[in-house]
Simulated scan of single mutants.
Amino acid sequence: MANLDRADLQIIKELQEDARMTLTELASRVGLSKTPCQLRMRRLEEQGYITGYTALVDHGKLGLNHIAFVQVTLNDTSSKALTAFNKAVRKIGEVEQCHMIAGGYDYLLKVRTNDMVAYRMVLGEKLSTLPHVVQTSTFVVMESVKDIGL
């Protein structure tokens, strides 16, 4: 981050707020002309500071209102076991996020489904069968107070 200046950081911030704004609007917001702004954007992408662009969706309208956070404990945390778990969990579409955690369990997953019945199926048929899973604990979200895009 040492090679990023105020304008670079502002470009990143503005694009996080609205990645669909025009280059002219972005340049205006960060106080640059279009060409230098575009060059900086391209450099930020090439250097991996900006890794992609995505659409924020209303999950409720898609019928995906049920969110559960799942603590996962493995019976083996060797490099081989972690790699196997990581590879397998990436294939489960309902898992929105997966984080390796330091603490009383090994992973924290964010799982999104349309209801508790669907979640129960994901837990029983997918999550519990992941490599090296020995225990899971589920925490169901009652209300999202702050979330990206809200």
Rank of each mutant, 00 (worst) to 15 (best):
A84M: 03
V89H: 03
Q16M: 13
N3R: 09
I50M: 07
E125D: 15
G104A: 14
L108C: 07
L123T: 01
R40L: 05
S79C: 10
L26G: 00
L82V: 13
L150V: 09
Q71E: 15
I11K: 05
Y49I: 06
L32N: 03
G31C: 12
T24W: 00
V122F: 02
L9G: 09
Q97H: 14
K61I: 05
S78D: 08
G124D: 15
R6N: 10
A19T: 07
L108T: 08
N86H: 08
A102M: 13
M41I: 07
A2G: 09
G63E: 06
A118K: 13
A2I: 03
Q97V: 01
A27G: 13
L26Q: 03
C37W: 11
L109F: 02
Q47T: 13
F85C: 15
E94R: 03
M41S: 00
L39Q: 11
A68R: 02
N86W: 02
V122W: 02
K80M: 12
E14L: 09
K126L: 15
I148C: 06
V145Y: 14
Y119H: 08
L130M: 07
A118S: 09
D18Q: 13
A55G: 03
N65Y: 09
E45L: 00
I50L: 05
Y49A: 10
V133A: 11
V133M: 06
G48S: 05
K80F: 12
V141E: 03
G93L: 06
A27Q: 02
K146W: 01
L39G: 13
Q38R: 01
D106T: 11
R40G: 07
C98R: 08
N3C: 06
N114C: 05
H66E: 14
S128E: 11
D76K: 04
E25P: 04
G52N: 02
S137F: 08
K146I: 12
L56T: 11
N75Q: 12
